[in-house]
Each structure stands twice: as structure tokens, then as C-alpha cells.
Computed example of a mutant assay.
Amino acid sequence: MLSTTGPELRSLRMLFILILVLLFQLIDGKRDLISACTTCKQISENFNKGFDRTMKQNFGGGNTAWEERKLSKYETSEIRLMEIVEGLCESSSFECNRMVEEHEEHFETWWFKRKTKHPDLHKWFCIETIKVCCPKGTFGPDCNACVGGSERPCHGNGLCDGEGTRGGSGKCSCNHGYQGEFCLDCIDGYFNEIRNDTFSLCSECHSSCKTCTGATNQDCDECKEGWEEDDQEACVDVNECLKDPSPCKEDQYCLNKEGSYSCKACDTVCSGCTGVGPDKCQACASGYQDTEGTCTDIDECSQPEPPCTKENQECANTNGSYMCICSSGFEEHDDECVQTPQPEKAEESEASDSDLHREL
């Protein structure tokens, strides 16, 4: 039996840790490359906004015409450039400010020498000069074409990882409905309406199909759960509510839906039901009676033999039941209805008790 000694085990651990560190560095490196391009793109967009914002400004001095004649035009001046550069980054954005500071001379070069020939600042600065971005449809250090080609990355059916940056893997993240390395295949529930080596259009199957070759319920290769194939080989809804016994509880009724069903509570007046409402009861609950096909409350208080028989007691009807309450002027005491004490008599009783106490 082979065994690993202490030094060998430590070496294996160190190797494992080193692999993890390198892996994390690789992931962080790709993330930094994508982040650098995002920052550069934002700088370019802010530069264009600043350019538009300063379009109609001037030196702001007392004699603008003289300054432009003797010095330079504000339109192409260094002053205007500095005003634009100062507004490129938020003060809290470290990465943006660092990039602008490191490459400030490039803005001057472009402004005074390259702007006319290279009007697209993002392309000249981010892609061709500091090389943190790639052209649309390409990715990675060498700006390789995305899967499917740079004109239609992922054949137009997904997103290319790292597209437009010097990072990413170039792999496709397919849009909903599509799958596969090239985003040309359809997921379950979709079918290829059009398909060739470079183009694919996936459309949704009929709601009854798990897989299909067309748009109708007769084009299903396989029916979804809750559907079944009929004599015409079409997927049709299974009515679970017709099953015996019912899939629902005794105090519920079954409501069929396409591909499924749901159980709903019966009306409280019902003992079992076939649908919603007191007229869909299979039988009436206790305290209710069938009145022309509808379960209605039984007024126990109107029965020939009243249910409340104690002295000074009255019957109060409730939905599905009744209550025995004391008549007006009486209150319940020890399960009996006794007369409610009158305020005057209560005061006299208190006075008598007080006199008796003084005599004692």
C-alpha cells in the first residue's frame, strides 16, 4: 500500500494552492481587461459629450475676436481640450482618473494631430493606441473573431463573451430558445423554422408539445405532461377532473386547465361540490337545506320546537347554526339568565351596607 510522507503531502498542498492562485489571477486578469475597455469606452463617450457641450463656447475673455485672431481659435484650442478632459471622470472613479492621467498626452496628440484623419476617438484611442478594446465582433488579446464571425457573432442568436474587449473567452451565451456552441440549435419547446450552416430561426412549439417539428399541436414529437396524443396524432389536453376518484379533496372541486388542473375550495354551505357557489353542492352542510337546488341556511329559531328552552332565553339565528342568548334585561350567570341589577337598587344596597358597617 502506497503512503504519502509529510514532506510529500506539504508539496502537494503547495502545488494545489499555487494552481488555485494562478487560476484566480487568470480570472481576475480577464475581468481587469474587460473592465479597462469599459472604462475607456466611457471616457470616449464623455469626451464626445464634452465636445458637444463646449461647441458654442469661447475664451470667455473681454475681446474674443482679438484672442482668436492673435492666438488661436477656441474651437481647436488647448483651453477647450483641458475643459473637456477635466470632465471625463467622476472624482470617485479611481480607474477612470488613472487612465486619463496615464494617457493624457494621447488626448493632446489626437486633438492637435489626429482628430481630422481619425474622428472616432474610441477606435483611435481605445482600440488602436492603448489597445484595451477590440473592434465589434472580436475579443481577446489579438482581437480574434467571435464564434460565428465578427459580422454576426454567435450567428446573431447570442452574446460573445468579451466581445469588443481584450478579455473574454469568445464563447457564445445563447439567447432564449437557442443552444449549442454556435447558437444554431433549438432548445426543447422550440423548432427550427429556418436553418442552414450560418443562420437559424427557432420558433416556439405549440403549448402542448415538449418537442416538435412545427407550430401546431399535430407537429409534436412528444406531448408535454398533462397532454396526450389523440386518434389524429395531435396532442390534446388531459381532463384530470374526469378521473375517478377525483384528484381533489372532498371539500374541493376540480377545475381543469390546459395541461393541468387546480383544486378550489367548495362553498361553506356545501358538503362536497362540483363547482363554485351554493348551487353546485353535492349535498348541503350541517345547518343548511336544499331549496330548489341551492343550499340555504336553516332558521333553527323558526322551527316548531324552539331549541332554546331555558327561562328568559331567546334564540338568535346564525349562518348554519344558532345561539341561545338571554332576553333583554337579563344576563347570564352560572349558565342561567338572571335579571340584570337596576342601578337604583344597587345604590340602595351599597348605602345599606355602609350604614350597617357604621353601626358595627
Score class of each variant (00 low, 15 high):
residue 2 L to G: 12
residue 3 S to Y: 13
residue 11 S to R: 11
residue 15 L to V: 12
residue 18 L to H: 10
residue 19 I to R: 11
residue 23 L to S: 03
residue 26 L to Y: 06
residue 29 G to N: 10
residue 33 L to Q: 15
residue 35 S to G: 09
residue 36 A to T: 11
residue 40 C to A: 15
residue 41 K to S: 12
residue 41 K to Q: 12
residue 43 I to E: 01
residue 46 N to V: 04
residue 52 D to P: 00
residue 54 T to V: 10
residue 54 T to H: 13
residue 57 Q to V: 07
residue 62 G to Y: 02
residue 65 A to R: 12
residue 65 A to K: 09
residue 71 L to R: 06
residue 73 K to G: 03
residue 76 T to D: 03
residue 77 S to W: 02
residue 80 R to K: 11
residue 86 E to V: 04
residue 89 C to H: 01
residue 90 E to Q: 06
residue 91 S to D: 09
residue 96 C to Q: 00
residue 98 R to W: 04
residue 99 M to Q: 06
residue 102 E to V: 08
residue 102 E to A: 02
residue 104 E to Q: 09
residue 104 E to N: 00
residue 116 T to R: 07
residue 122 H to S: 13
residue 130 I to E: 06
residue 139 F to K: 02
residue 141 P to R: 09
residue 145 A to C: 07
residue 147 V to Q: 12
residue 147 V to D: 09
residue 148 G to H: 01
residue 151 E to K: 15
residue 162 G to P: 08
residue 163 E to Y: 09
residue 165 T to L: 11
residue 165 T to I: 09
residue 166 R to Y: 03
residue 167 G to C: 14
residue 168 G to T: 12
residue 169 S to F: 10
residue 170 G to V: 14
residue 174 C to E: 08
residue 182 F to L: 13
residue 185 D to N: 12
residue 187 I to F: 10
residue 195 R to H: 14
residue 197 D to E: 07
residue 205 C to A: 00
residue 211 T to W: 05
residue 213 T to D: 05
residue 214 G to P: 05
residue 218 Q to W: 07
residue 219 D to A: 01
residue 222 E to N: 09
residue 223 C to Y: 02
residue 234 A to S: 05
residue 235 C to I: 05
residue 237 D to T: 01
residue 241 C to G: 05
residue 246 S to D: 01
residue 247 P to S: 02
residue 253 Y to N: 06
residue 268 T to Q: 03
residue 268 T to K: 04
residue 275 G to T: 08
residue 279 D to N: 03
residue 280 K to G: 04
residue 280 K to M: 04
residue 281 C to H: 07
residue 285 A to G: 14
residue 290 D to Y: 05
residue 291 T to R: 13
residue 295 C to K: 05
residue 299 D to M: 10
residue 301 C to G: 13
residue 306 P to T: 14
residue 306 P to V: 13
residue 315 C to A: 14
residue 321 S to G: 14
residue 323 M to H: 14
residue 325 I to G: 13
residue 326 C to D: 03
residue 342 Q to M: 11
residue 347 E to M: 14
residue 348 E to H: 07
residue 358 R to F: 01
